[in-house]
Design a protein around this nucleic acid. Structure first.
Lengths: 223, 223
DNA sequence: ACCTGAACACCGTTCAAGT
DNA sequence: ACCTGAACACCGTTCAAGT
């Protein structure tokens, strides 16, 4: 592993590779130095310290999530396309995305997607504060879904598992429901279904306005 | 800080206090021993090692999130109540909830809420796989929203901030929209709005079925 | 401008020894 | 059954010294 001179990019590449394969805990300064064939202290000259090294990796990830080009015939279709694209790209970099999340930069990472959503919501005829709420509702739902989904994928064997909890004997009133909940969720289908339901309600004229909101007492408003 | 004999519960209480105040990184075995006035090694006798100590804290948190008693007149209202209760309880324990999330136990923590949702969806007349999908859609949305919200609260000053990005000059076509996005989101309002929109669409007869889903090509189905 | 080894102050964990 | 100090193998980081 003899080399001419070490560069900052080489350090970042090696660090990113370690993190993507084994997670941030596997990134030790000494281990990284060994990987690069240099002294530990050389790394400090190029990237400062471990924390700013991780920051640089996160920054890179945020930039890579930049361009969103949705396709589709209607605004609703293009909103769905934005959601699908985000989901695909995020699932490629689970460890790095978790680090973005830990640093509280998830929202910033999604700003390009937010701009695309603004465009589509506007095309659907929403204006002003109403349009802003629709954008944020979709954004929160998509980002939130991805966080939950990732959590599920990482989770170890759950106890009690849904399959035990929802064995049909425990829910005799609706065995088909119990069977459905005992099966693992279909994440693609559930994602589409959820986003479509939300978008449908948000774009429907006159619906989805929180100003008719139920109060904190849990009672329904008059209608 | 002289004491008779150290107990496992005392160790857990002190550890929980440290974590709740300053996060898991602030929990060092040596620091915890100093807090308790014992030798580091005594802690090992009671709780094993640091990892299983954290596991025990997480387990406790999952148990504390147990009972959900929604109120409200209609199933839709009671689903909203479940969502609000979850949100309130989770916001009380941010560090511990993050640890539950890191261990992939978020879903297990929400099983009691899931059972409440099953009851309400059933009361609303949904059955079988359709009901299961509605439950999961609401569950994913609520949990996801909370994760996103927590991320926002923790996040440092964002750059570019939404307020810079959405200054009205950048979106001349709809200055009211730009102003709305430049303002910080109202999390209570957005939460209610999103859950209500999703629940409305899911409980509406015949709506919200993914079997009429748009394909991956982003084109709309015939209607 | 870039790299190095030595040293420092921290970790979590183990272990033999105490009572 | 419970507690202890000493020791081990690791960390991240600093610094004076090299070229």
């Amino acid at each position: 592993m003899a080399r001419t001179t070490l560069t900052r990019d080489e350090v970042l590449d090696a660090a990113a590779s370690l993190v993507m394969q084994h997670g941030p805990a596997a990134l030790t300064m000494r281990g990284l130095a060994a990987e690069l064939g240099t002294a530990v202290t050389s790394i400090y000259w190029h990237v400062g310290n471990r924390e700013s090294l991780l920051d640089a990796l996160v920054e890179r990830t945020v930039e890579e999530m930049g361009a969103i080009r949705p396709t589709g015939r209607t605004p609703a279709d293009r909103i769905l396309a934005v959601a699908r694209i985000l989901r695909r790209e995020l699932r490629r970099r689970p460890h790095l995305i978790a680090m973005v999340h830990e640093r509280g930069l998830t929202e910033r990472m999604f700003l390009p997607a937010q701009q695309a959503l603004v465009h589509e919501v506007h095309a659907a005829g929403l204006r002003g504060a109403r349009a802003a709420e629709a954008v944020r509702a979709v954004q929160f739902q998509v980002v939130g879904y991805l966080l939950v989904e990732r959590n599920r994928e990482r989770s170890p064997a759950q106890s009690p598992a849904e399959s035990e909890l929802w064995d049909p004997a425990a829910a005799p009133h609706d065995p088909a429901l119990a069977r459905a909940l005992a099966r693992p969720a279909d994440p693609d289908r559930l994602f589409l279904l959820s986003v479509r339901a939300l978008v449908h309600a948000l774009l429907a004229p006159g619906a989805a306005d929180a100003s008719d909101a139920t109060g904190t007492d849990g009672t329904a408003p008059p209608r």
